[in-house]
Design a protein around this nucleic acid. Structure first.
Lengths: 369, 369
DNA sequence: CATCGATGTGAGTCCGGTCTCAATCCTACG
DNA sequence: CGTAGGATTGAGACCGGACTCACATCGATG
C-alpha cells in the first residue's frame, strides 16, 4: 500500500526479520533459501519481503561468499565489430550461467590494460577474459595467473603463458590466403596493420601482437614454400588513423615496384585502404587485388564484394566464457578448442595484371629474377 | 622478497597494520588517505602495503560508503555498431571520471530488460543508462526513477518520464529525409523496421518504440505538408531475421503499386535490404532509391555510396555518461542537450523513374489521383 | 518413558573496509 | 610551569548479508 516512506536507506534482512517477527538469522535463511526453515516462518518472511520490496544487497553477499558472480572483460576496442561480436558471445554465455560482465576498453594501450586488470581485481571479479594488447609485456597478466584467479585469453595469445586461449590459428590461414594470392600470380603483396611499433618493420623484429606476428609468419611461409622471396618492404605497420592508412596505401601502390595485392589486417582499416585505392583511380580487382581480415556483412555489398578471412568470433567469445566459467567453478578444463578461420573467396582478388601478360610466371614455384 | 606464501586469502588492512605495527584504524587512514596520520606511520604503512602488495577490496569499500563507482548500461544489442559506438562514448567518459561500466544486453526484450535493471540495482550500481526496449511498458524504469537512483536514457525516450534523455529528434530528421525523397519525385516510400509488434502496422496503433513512432510520424508530416497521401501500406515492421527482411523487401518492391524508394531503419537490416534489392535485379538508384539510418563507414564503399541519416551516437554516449555523473554527484542537471541527426546525401537516392516520365508530378504539392 | 536424530531457531561472529569517539601526545601560549 | 587545543592513535561499532554454534522442539524408536 504505502509505496512511500522507503526514503533513502534500503531495506535489509533485519527489516524483513522485524516485520516478520523472527530473528535475522531465520529471515536470512528463508530469503537465501538455505538451512532449515519452517513453512510458517518462510511464508511470513517472504510475505514481509514482498511487502517491503526487499532486494538483497549483492555487494554484501559477495563480500562474505567471496564470489561476485561478475567477470571482467578487457578488450582493445568495442567499437570494432570484431570485438563487439566476441563480447556478445561472452555476455550471452555469461548471462545464461548467471554471471554479469564488466567491460573495459583499453584502446590497445598496455598501460590502460594494466590499470583495467587492477581495477577489476580490486572489484573482486570472479574471473577475467582478456584480449592482451601485448603478447610480450605480460607481467600484469602473469601476476593474475599466478594469483590463481581464473583467466582466459581471447583473440590473441600472450607469450607462452599456460592460459587457455581462444584464438584462431593465424599463421595457417595467413599462409593459405597468401598462397591464394600467389596462385593468382601476385608477388608483390602488401600487408597493412594498425599495430603500433617504434620503428618500421624489419624481418627479425619483435612484435607486440602475436596475431600480427603470426600473420606475417604465415605469409613468409607461403612465399618460402613457393620458392619466392618475401617482399618485406611491403609489410607496413603503424597504420593508426585514416590519414596514415591512406598515405601508406598510396605508398605501396605507387612507384616502380608497387604492390599488386593488398591485405588489410582488420575491418576498420580496410575501409580507408579501399577508399585510398579508389581515390588513386585504381579498380579492384582489375588493377589491385584486395583481401581483408574479418568477415563483416557489408563486405558482401561492395563492388566487387570483398574476399575476406572469416573468423568465428562469436563462438570464440562463447568458448572463452565457457572455459572461464569452468575454471571459476573448479571444473577441469575442456579439451582445448581449435578455431579455424576460413578464406571467403568473393570478388576482390583477381589475377595479377603483370603476371597475366607473362603466362609463364603464373605457375608458382618458377624461378624468377 | 617472498612472493609466495600469500596462498588463497588476500591481504587486508589488518595484515598491513600488523606488519607496520600500528592499529587497523591508522593503517586504514594511511591507506585511504584520510584523517590525520603522522609521517612516520604513513611511511611504515605504505611500505608494508607495498611489501605485501596490498590491494583494497572495493566490495568492502563500496559496502559502507554506499558508492560502487560503477554504472550500469542496458542496451538492446552491442553487436550493432550503433550501440557499440554509444557504449564507447559512455565507457570513455565514465573511465575518465573514475567509474566502471557493467554492460547488459537485452536483445530488445522487455523481460530481459526488467531483469537486467533488477540485477544492476542489486549490485548497487551508482546509476543507470538505459536504451529502453519499450517506451510504453516502463514500470520497472519508473520504479528506478522513483527510488531516486540516477538514471539517464539514451537513444530512445520512455513515455513521458521526466528523465534526462539523450536522443535525436527523430521526427524532424525523418520529415527532412522524407521531404528529400518526395522532392526527388517519390510517392511510394517504404519504411522497414525490425520493431516487433503483434500485428502489422495500422495507422493508429501504439508502437513500443518512440524512435520508430517518431520516424513514421515524421514521414506522415512530410507527406501531409506536401499535400500527398501517406502510403501506410508500405510501413513494414517485424523485419526480424534476414529471411523476413528479404521477403518484406521483395513484397514492397513487387506488384502493381510497388515502392520506388526504401528506407531501412537501421544499419543492420540495411544490409539484407540492399542484398534483396540486388537479388531482384534492381539497381540503386536507377530503379529504386535507398536511404538508411546510421552512418556506418562502409556506406561510403558501396556502389553507389549510400545516402544515410547520421546520428551523433558517440556524443550521445558521452553526454549520457556526463549527465549521469552529474546526477550521481548531486550536481544540478546541465541544460538539456539537443542532438540533431543529419542527412548525408550520397548516391543511393535518385529521381523517381515514373516521376521522371511525367515531369509535372515532380513538383510536390500538385494534386494527383 | 527415556533416548536419539532430525529439524527449528536465535545470538553472535565474520567478511574487509570506513568512520566515530574517547584517550593520549605535543607544543605553544599565558 | 600549567594547560588549552590541535594532532595522533587505538578500540570498536557498523555496512548487510552468510554462516557457526548452542539450545530448543518434536516425533519416533527401544
Amino acid at each position: 500500500m504505502k509505496a512511500e516512506g522507503a526514503r533513502r536507506r534500503d531495506v535489509t534482512v533485519a527489516d524483513v526479520a522485524k516485520a516478520a517477527r523472527v530473528s535475522k538469522a531465520q529471515a536470512a535463511r528463508a530469503l537465501g533459501n538455505y538451512g532449515a526453515v519452517s513453512d510458517d516462518v518462510r511464508e511470513r518472511v517472504l510475505a514481509a519481503a514482498e511487502e517491503l520490496s526487499y532486494r538483497p544487497n549483492e555487494l554484501a553477499r559477495s563480500m562474505n561468499t567471496g564470489k561476485s558472480h561478475t567477470i571482467g572483460v578487457v578488450v582493445g576496442d568495442i567499437e570494432n565489430p570484431h570485438f563487439g561480436l566476441a563480447t556478445r558471445g561472452i555476455t550471452d554465455t555469461a548471462k545464461k550461467a548467471g554471471y554479469n560482465v564488466i567491460l573495459v576498453n583499453t584502446d590497445e594501450d598496455r598501460a590502460a590494460e594494466v590499470d583495467a586488470v587492477r581495477v577489476l581485481l580490486d572489484k573482486r571479479v570472479d574471473g577475467l577474459i582478456v584480449a592482451p594488447a601485448s603478447s610480450v609485456d605480460t607481467g600484469h597478466l602473469q601476476e593474475v595467473h599466478r594469483s590463481g584467479r581464473p583467466l582466459v585469453f581471447i583473440d590473441r595469445t600472450a607469450g607462452d603463458m599456460p592460459v587457455e586461449t581462444m584464438a584462431v590459428d593465424m599463421a595457417r590461414i595467413s599462409r593459405e590466403a597468401t598462397q591464394y594470392l600467389l596462385d593468382a600470380g601476385h608477388r608483390r603483396i602488401a600487408f597493412i596493420s594498425t599495430l603500433r611499433t617504434d620503428a618500421p618493420y624489419t624481418p627479425g623484429m619483435t612484435l607486440e601482437s602475436s596475431q600480427i606476428a603470426d600473420r606475417i609468419e604465415g605469409m613468409r611461409q607461403a612465399f618460402l614454400e613457393s620458392g619466392l622471396p618475401f617482399p618485406e618492404d611491403l609489410v607496413r605497420l603503424n597504420a593508426g588513423d585514416e590519414d596514415s592508412i591512406r598515405s601508406i596505401t598510396r605508398e605501396v601502390l605507387r612507384g616502380p615496384d608497387q604492390a599488386t595485392a593488398v591485405v588489410a589486417s582488420d575491418g576498420l582499416i580496410a575501409l580507408s585502404v579501399v577508399e585510398a585505392i579508389q581515390e588513386l583511380g585504381l579498380s579492384i580487382p582489375a588493377d589491385v587485388s584486395f583481401l581483408m581480415y574479418d568477415d563483416f556483412a557489408w563486405t558482401r555489398l561492395t563492388t566487387p564484394p570483398l574476399t575476406v578471412i572469416a573468423q568465428p568470433v562469436y563462438n570464440m567469445g562463447v568458448a572463452a566464457a565457457k572455459a572461464l566459467i569452468r575454471q571459476m567453478e573448479g571444473q577441469p578444463p575442456a579439451a582445448p578448442a581449435q578455431f579455424t578461420a576460413t578464406l571467403v573467396r568473393r570478388g576482390s582478388v583477381g589475377p595479377c595484371r603483370e603476371a597475366a601478360e607473362d603466362p609463364l610466371s603464373r605457375r608458382a614455384g618458377a624461378r624468377l629474377s
